[in-house]
Nucleic acid binder design. Sequence first.
DNA 1: CTGGATGGTAAGCCAAACTGACGAACTCGT
DNA 2: ACGAGTTCGTCAGTTTGGCTTACCATCCAG
Lengths: 156, 156
Amino acid sequence: MDEENSVLDPMLGALLRQPFQAITARVLADLHACGYGDLRPSHLTVFQHLPAGGGRPTELAERAQMTKQSMGALVDQLVTAGYIERAADPRDGRARVLRRTERGWAVERSARASIGALEAEWAMALGAERLAQCRAFLSDLSELLDGEASDAGPRR
Amino acid sequence: MDEENSVLDPMLGALLRQPFQAITARVLADLHACGYGDLRPSHLTVFQHLPAGGGRPTELAERAQMTKQSMGALVDQLVTAGYIERAADPRDGRARVLRRTERGWAVERSARASIGALEAEWAMALGAERLAQCRAFLSDLSELLDGEASDAGPRR
DNA sequence: CTGGATGGTAAGCCAAACTGACGAACTCGT
DNA sequence: ACGAGTTCGTCAGTTTGGCTTACCATCCAG
């Protein structure tokens, strides 16, 4: 029946990638429709890792598994566009503290709403229970991977 | 307890992205260690979508959700590096048929082995049953998303 | 047999990551 | 208290991986 399929057939990697991209696309589309048209996919990773109380660029870079230069560029764009702001860190003259502006908080609320809606659709179609189980498994897996990450390659 | 966490906290998107990247990284690292050092992440998507019996570039581009030009570039690199080969399509003078070389098949076997090993680790740590459930859910979700994709934006 | 659709290629652009190098500021041992 | 080494952020340059626009060659339907 499936002679025409690839040999690397329903690879787990592909199964994970597809819903990830679906979420990103939906969140971004909704944000664009709400007047936040200058946000791009990579900007979402900044919001994902910025603690509510604020945080430093280097800290964000580590969490997002990227270099501080790359994160610095993203932060620059978000500051220019008015989503977050830089302040001097009173405890460390080298460091900056990043905080969301009101506009930044609005983005966060919108993103959460979009994700919630999408998850609700999926729960409706496939079962809330199964979605919850899958989510719980991925959450545990995330902890496992975090542990390994700190063992092995520190992200500079 | 978790006052220091982000507001977009354990977002489903991030939970999906992390294991996806872990798989890609592992597969690629193993390939590099086995003498296939010229492969880069994007090349894996070609292998993922190329049917065992061969296929056309345009067909691959559609499956991978990218333009035929982008896919063409990846294919070029893989042909140059000797992983796949181009042949004229006897039924259509415009078209080319792409097939894996022996070296290409070796990559495929190595990738499958890496993924298998990684999944085994995860099953060991978190439970084979839960992994299987999660995989099944993602598989169903993939079908759901495929259906929506063909409704809406056809990828040109 | 011709006019539009389709398969593939070419050229140029841009976003998003990387590496290497660096100055300013912190920390710690002496 | 001060010099050596480390860490924070930034600058400059490069690579990767995608996109758009434009084309030519070929197929196919009327």
